[in-house]
């Protein structure tokens, strides 16, 4: 069957898609808690203050996050809005695996289809060694997918939708 096309989330999604504790990602197992913050800007360098980010990642053990029960949010999945200044904040656990990373989907007014990307919480050489990144392993653009450690368990990752320093987005 033929797929239903994508449309923009528009500017008025907040009440409809807001999840309680959407920015506090939980897991079945203990792990090192980390905070990922960042800012999304457009092609003019202006903040994107009406975006929604969704995150999906491996558990601290490096496995698919276990199912939750009751009314809880799904393990391993985060959903946050950007503030007016384009910033976002996600509390989660350090993902397992050889190159710890979080898959990101960005939705916003002006995005007729979500943007997909990924942030590595590891040194750039680990991202370079990830087979998923083989097509850009030698590109200077790879660094747009690597977060900067700013303190113990604190990471910073900014997103540029367009223009100089544009973040690498995935075809899908």
């Amino acid at each position: 069957m033929d797929r239903t096309p994508s449309q923009t989330i528009g500017p008025f999604f907040h009440e409809g898609l807001r999840w309680r504790d959407g920015g506090k990602v939980a897991f079945a197992e203990e792990g090192k808690r980390i905070v990922l913050t960042g800012r999304i800007v457009d092609g003019a360098g202006d903040p994107v203050g009406d975006a929604m980010l969704e995150t999906w990642q491996q558990s601290p053990r490096g496995t698919v996050p276990a199912a939750t029960s009751g009314a809880k949010n799904p393990h391993g999945f985060g959903r946050v809005e950007t503030s007016k200044d384009g910033t976002f904040r996600i509390e989660t656990s350090m993902p397992g695996g050889a190159a710890p990373c979080i898959d990101i989907a960005i939705f916003a007014r002006g995005l007729l289809k979500a943007l997909r990307t990924r942030v590595y919480l590891a040194a750039q050489d680990k991202a370079r060694a990830d087979p998923m990144m083989s097509a850009i392993a030698s590109s200077p653009r790879l660094k747009t997918l690597v977060a900067t450690a700013t303190g113990d368990g604190e990471f910073r990752w900014d997103v540029r939708l367009q223009g100089e320093g544009e973040t690498v987005f995935f075809a899908f």
Binding site: D42, V64, P74, G110, M132, E166, V168, F169, F170
Partner: peptide, 25 residues
């Protein structure tokens, strides 16, 4: 106009996004 990427999108290895997703209880 200002929110669309201009660079070429990265083609991922086939099936890379076809992994299990979140399970909402």
């Amino acid at each position: 106009l200002l929110r669309s990427p201009k660079e070429k999108l990265l083609e991922l290895p086939r099936g890379a996004l076809d992994v299990p997703g979140p399970l909402v209880p």
